[in-house]
């Protein structure tokens, strides 16, 4: 390859990462701004941090979002793992093509369509059975529905990656399928379960459109509150919130990466020891 190519590639990388991170950096810097105007620097201050921490509406919304995200991540991980397992391990069953469609479609379906569709279902159910009341339940169910698809994809690609011979050997030695799953498959796909759970949690914490459709008048999640405040114009409190979110996510990802790395190294050492 000519000497120019790597330099061009480096430039492309630098541009790409600047594009991704400069906007986030500006948010963080201006969260420490004294001025109410988000784009005019008025000196360093923790003023808006104090305001945010005293903002009870914001804290309530954050708590509700957190609870929904927790429920969503747990249920979606269980259902999504089942779906991912079915896709990776059962090559033939009735309705498999439709099933792959049901997993693929939520990944790309515009959220406004899913939002109105899910709400109309809840309204119809409410008319027929007087259930569910709009709020926590409806938001959680709507989030689980699209989170399942994401978890399924993560789990399925992990299952496709590893060698089935170990599972088959255990079966040949007379282990029951449930034992094989618990002692062999589950530890091997554990990293996928962790990523799937975190992905489902994040998607739920972040969802606005679907939530706005199914939430009902009583409940307000964090993205709903951010949206209504952003629509009125820029607000320094949102910058503070952004800084908190970015910090939490960065720390969580670094810890998760470190843990996974450690697990992988340990597995490799064990594999070598066996050999």
């Amino acid at each position: 390859m000519s000497g120019r190519t790597p330099r061009l590639l480096l430039a492309a990388l630098a541009f790409g990462y600047a594009f991704l991170y400069v906007p986030i950096l500006t948010l963080i810097i201006y969260s420490f701004n004294e001025s109410r105007l988000v784009t005019v620097w008025g000196g360093f201050s923790f003023k808006w941090w104090g305001e945010l921490l005293r903002n009870d509406t914001m804290l309530d919304a954050a708590l509700l979002s957190f609870q929904i995200a927790l429920v969503n991540a747990c249920v979606a991980t269980v259902l999504g793992t089942m779906a991912g397992f079915a896709l990776a391990r059962y090559p033939r069953f009735i309705g498999r093509t439709a099933f792959t469609g049901l997993i693929a479609a939520p990944l790309v379906m515009p959220e406004v369509i899913m939002g109105i569709a899910t709400l109309l279902l809840f309204v119809a159910l409410d008319q027929l059975f007087h259930w569910p009341e709009r709020g926590f339940t409806t938001i959680a169910v709507a989030h689980i529905t699209f989170s399942v698809a994401y978890v399924a994809v993560v789990v399925q690609s992990r299952l496709a990656d590893f060698d089935r011979a170990v599972e088959e050997a255990a079966m040949d030695l007379g282990a029951r399928p449930s034992t094989v799953f618990r002692t062999i498959t589950l530890p091997l796909i554990a990293p996928a379960l962790v990523s799937g759970w975190l992905l489902a949690f994040t998607l739920s914490m972040d969802d606005l459109i679907l939530t706005q459709f199914v939430a009902g008048p009583q409940s307000q999640t964090l993205p709903m509150l951010i949206y209504s405040s952003v629509r009125l114009g820029v607000s320094p409190q949102i910058n503070v919130l952004a800084t908190i979110i970015v910090t939490v996510v960065a720390v969580a990802i670094i810890i998760a990466g470190w843990l996974m790395n450690r697990t992988r190294r340990r597995q490799m050492r064990e594999a070598q020891a066996v050999r």
Binding site: I24, L27, T202, D206, L208, V230, I238, A242, I245
Partner: peptide, 10 residues
Amino acid sequence: WTSFLIRIYA
């Protein structure tokens, strides 16, 4: 992994 809404707000 950070908020979509906040990235657009930026």
